[in-house]
Design a binder for these strands. Sequence first.
DNA 1: CGGGATGCTAAACGAACGTTCAGCTCTCGG
DNA 2: CCGAGAGCTGAACGTTCGTTTAGCATCCCG
Lengths: 199, 199
Amino acid sequence: MRSADDLTARARIRDAALVRFGADGVAGTSVRAVAADADVSAALVLHHFGSKDGLRQACDDHVLGLIRSGSAGEVEHEALAELLAEATPLRRYLARALLDGSPAANTMFSEIVDATRRWLAEGEAQGWVKPTEDPLARAVTYVSWLFAPLVLGEQVGRLLGGDVAEMRTSVRAARVGLDMLTNGLFADDRWLKAFSSVT
Amino acid sequence: MRSADDLTARARIRDAALVRFGADGVAGTSVRAVAADADVSAALVLHHFGSKDGLRQACDDHVLGLIRSGSAGEVEHEALAELLAEATPLRRYLARALLDGSPAANTMFSEIVDATRRWLAEGEAQGWVKPTEDPLARAVTYVSWLFAPLVLGEQVGRLLGGDVAEMRTSVRAARVGLDMLTNGLFADDRWLKAFSSVT
DNA sequence: CGGGATGCTAAACGAACGTTCAGCTCTCGG
DNA sequence: CCGAGAGCTGAACGTTCGTTTAGCATCCCG
């Protein structure tokens, strides 16, 4: 009914669950804790979502919906970075979902890889991306690198950020990352040669 | 006593816990499940480790010890990659520990970043690593990229591996990664410029 | 006005949890 | 021979878990 304001108890429960699931994991979160955070009874949680796993699925769908907020059901991986950089709870939830391999996380990862593969292919055709022998592996690796500061955000922030806002540190990491992807890290191909000779 | 063969019940319990913790998370694993996997009673688990959290700490210490198997208490991040590539349970355990920020995982990450920073500085002095304005951020980003296929191993393996042994896929990802770090990904600096102009 | 959804709660259920405890069976030094 | 200690177990403790049930308001539609 009043889905616009998104302040229904159902939405409050789902948001509270997202934070808890991200912070403590699904198994480490009790239905009662979520209910308390949302200021409702534990019974209402199950009334709305059927079961704890139903609540988890609803969180998955909601996150997927947030990420797909862009063009017509497809993941926009540029807006994604911004979305996740500021939203620590969402970031943690997604990191756990990726690790556990929840269906929604798998879908999201696959879609982003696919979009990246097409984007890189387009760049390769237009000349601003270097050619490769293994486009799929490159896209997967690129996306996993894109997600690395996301999943390891606690560690990156701890070593880079200190007490500063997270924005600073993610920008700092993004800059050096982009630099490595543009100019390279190694000045010669000694490691690449060494690797090729070993395998 | 017979610590050499490492087949005591205590070691069996610890190994079983490592697998379970990695697969289901600490909160999602019961002491009874670990005990069943190790073919002992639940009471023995607590007899040896005091509590469930004591068991978790023992796992942390054991993993840290395994990783530090190299030169005199310091992490060898080359051997680490091999160690983790083949050992899926250990990989999953470490991924969760990094995400949760357990003390052992924090220590390990910090040590690896520090070793990497010195290694890159040495390379920079010798000319086989390109210079940077932000050595710490580069080291952190490099290590997080190194760990990305580790933490996101389920996703990478799913898209790249199929049913093949994990060895293949990790080699495949490592090759394109090394290629990107040597030759770069982007042929010109349009993205780097775009990023610099925005921030 | 009246009755069936809808939103929500308190209380209780059985199961599973981490942990404790008394006691068993070996082994080994005196 | 025997008593102490280490390794180990079955049974039980109290707690918390996910879930169910019965019932209370509130609101909308006839």
